[in-house]
Structures are given as C-alpha cells and as structure tokens.
Amino acid sequence: MTAKAKKNDGTVQLAIKDDMTIYNAESLKETLLGYFHPGTRELQLDLSAVTEIDSAGLQLLLLLKAEAQKRGFTLRLLRHSEAVIEVFELLKLGMYFGDPIVIPANWKKS
C-alpha cells in the first residue's frame, strides 16, 4: 500500500493508492495507524485509487470511523472510487460516514 501524507495544522491527508482487500489489509492498517497522533484533528482519506474493496477493507474503514469518534477527530473520506461507492450503496453506508459522495457522470455506464 502506498499512501502520501500532507500535514498542516493537524490535518492529515492520505491517498490510498491500492486496493483495500484482505491481501493488504494488514499493512494498510499498520500504515494508517502510523498517522494517529494525539495532535491529529482531521484525517482525510482519498479513495479515488481504490479499484477494489472487500469486506476486510470495509472493516478497516468502519474501524477508522469508530476510532475517530472515540478519539474525537474527524474522518473524512474523499473522492470515493466506483468500487467504494458500490459497497456504500449496497450497505447504505453513505449516511453513516456522512461524507459527500461525488458520483461521476459516466457512473455505471461503462
């Protein structure tokens, strides 16, 4: 998994450049955990490059959300990829994560 991070005033921005599946869930979790600092106020995850997400990946997102609520920082999901949107729609998770989802114009047409 590759992730890039930018930091300014407590906001961490990460782009997940890989699938979110059971095959890399372990390393993904480790990496994400590495960005949990006491000073973090907001964690932004760019999901645009996630071409595949399975239950393990979803589980990680849910874990992050729960952890964010517990530690009192904000988790923001950005630029959901089609794979992510599909899962969110299936499980009606959009409201739960509460982030605006931008549905591309050519969505589901390809």
């Binding site: 059971i22 869930a25 372990e26 993904l28 979790k29 955990l33 949990f36 239950s55 393990a56 979803l58 589980q59 990680l60 849910l62 874990l63 729960a66 952890e67 299936l90 499980l91 009606k92 998770l93």
Partner: peptide, 21 residues
C-alpha cells in the same frame, strides 16, 4: 443494513484479517 462489530478489540489489537462484522 446495520453493521455492528461487537467483538472489536482496541485498534492496536485488531487483526485486519479477522472478521468482526
């Protein structure tokens, strides 16, 4: 759909390959 993870341990102990869903 409601997803719960009743058996979820602390984040440090959570094994991503286990299923908590």
């Amino acid at each position: 759909v409601i997803i719960t993870m009743p058996a979820l341990p602390r984040i440090e102990d959570m094994v991503p390959e286990d299923c908590y869903l």
